[in-house]
Design a binder for these strands. Sequence first.
DNA 1: GTTCCGCATGAATCGATAG
DNA 2: ACTATCGATTCATGCGGAA
Lengths: 283, 283
Amino acid sequence: MEVTTKLILGDCREKLKELESNSVDLILTSPPYCDSRKKTYGGIHPDKYVEWFLPISQELLRILKHDGTFVLNIKERVVGGERHTYVLQLILEMRKQSWLWTEELIWHKKNCYPGKWPNRFRDAWERLLQFNKNEKFNMYQEEVMVPVGNWAETRLKSLSKTDRIRDNAKNGSGFGKNVSNWINRDKVYPTNVLHLATECNNKNHSAVFPEALPEWFIKLFTKEGDTVLDPFMGSGTTIVVAQQMIRDSIGIEILPKYYEMVKNKIKTTDRHLFRGEKILCNY
Amino acid sequence: MEVTTKLILGDCREKLKELESNSVDLILTSPPYCDSRKKTYGGIHPDKYVEWFLPISQELLRILKHDGTFVLNIKERVVGGERHTYVLQLILEMRKQSWLWTEELIWHKKNCYPGKWPNRFRDAWERLLQFNKNEKFNMYQEEVMVPVGNWAETRLKSLSKTDRIRDNAKNGSGFGKNVSNWINRDKVYPTNVLHLATECNNKNHSAVFPEALPEWFIKLFTKEGDTVLDPFMGSGTTIVVAQQMIRDSIGIEILPKYYEMVKNKIKTTDRHLFRGEKILCNY
DNA sequence: GTTCCGCATGAATCGATAG
DNA sequence: ACTATCGATTCATGCGGAA
């Protein structure tokens, strides 16, 4: 199977306009945070963030397929001792553009750096905002199942009478259980919290996430041959993983340095090594 | 030291007006969520939630001391396949009331509700919104430090009963004289993610959070003799823990059933635990 | 006293069917 | 067309009784 990986050098506010409508299955990106990576996008002021981002989300809405998904990795800065509200406002404004705010997943960072501030603790989580164009979208849940908790070992060793039949909950919730259905089941569905380590290796880029993160979303929202877009490519984690997983991809990057870096990485990727065996743990 | 625990039966929209201004150090509450617990609390429609809550937050602003903290446990429902936006709007509106949105902590639930849906995974987290009246507020960070072995994985595991026992055993067995040194060296500040299980034992209330949760916030934001308020008392977890930790507290509950239940729980609290300190209960 | 094991329960959501 | 009710699905924890 052929994989097309397209890298574009330039400002995504311009370059997105050149992409075809309804052509992308998954958009996964981590845009520059306010006032960080100042040189690249000029350091967007928190108060200007929403108006800066809205034209971009408008273009993404056009480019995404009707059954595709947009995952936005973002976290608000602290400004004047407070969490700034630009992320909240961005969600509200994007809904006016007709985006549906389907879900907010959490990236729970396993190993965030130690540190101490007088009035707050270390920040160990980021938002993963899931937006869609329609209530129905592609989702391949089986692809991201995780090993069942070790509770199952002891729980299923011996089954009682009520375990073998459906046993309805007595609180009227409508829930019941048939524990015997779980015999020989070794995988369960994950939750909306991704408990992943941050990657500590310095990629010369300030906003890297671990490969397991794009891998999880690409598995969940695309199949082989689908197309993934990252309009703020940076060090290219999303694009590289997409290529390894036999998905076409498009990456846009404003800085020649990163653009070249990813171009070289793409070239040298050994396609035969990938087995897709990384497992997300659900605890 | 005397501990005063005051329980009030009634609607907090009325009863809060009777509380003194600038008199409370910590407000920690989990209001009824939209349309849930309909049978017990009537249910507030998602579109009406903000206007229902704002008069309450206005009163809380009056009652809280200038260096106190308000922690709001809340999570938005899914409506029409989307996360509803009332929590986002509530934050924006409360800021207009002059609340500062200092931080958003995450309660990562170890055992979340089961279920399977075609378009989303199980919800394993809730928001713990921290609001303050001023940039400077009381925060006793040392009180919630966690063993270093845990810091990367779970924040509060050390607070669970079994871990407390394990820690005591460790202290008692090997380390001898310099236990305090050992404690100081091997403890680290926690993060803003609390990784706790819900308590699903029979408390006759559908929405209890684990005792470790109020315990953590009470330690962090109050000292002995301070006052804690829960305007939506429910099964009274916050109030009971506050009493045990030698903090004065005020709990407001609209349903006589829970009010009576907590009254009995407070009464029968084992006072020898407080080393002969006197507890005053005002009903 | 301690460990082991059985088992009820929990801030839920979707789709189909009925009014 | 719009709302109300109902059935189906699911995983990890802590309690209490037994060994």
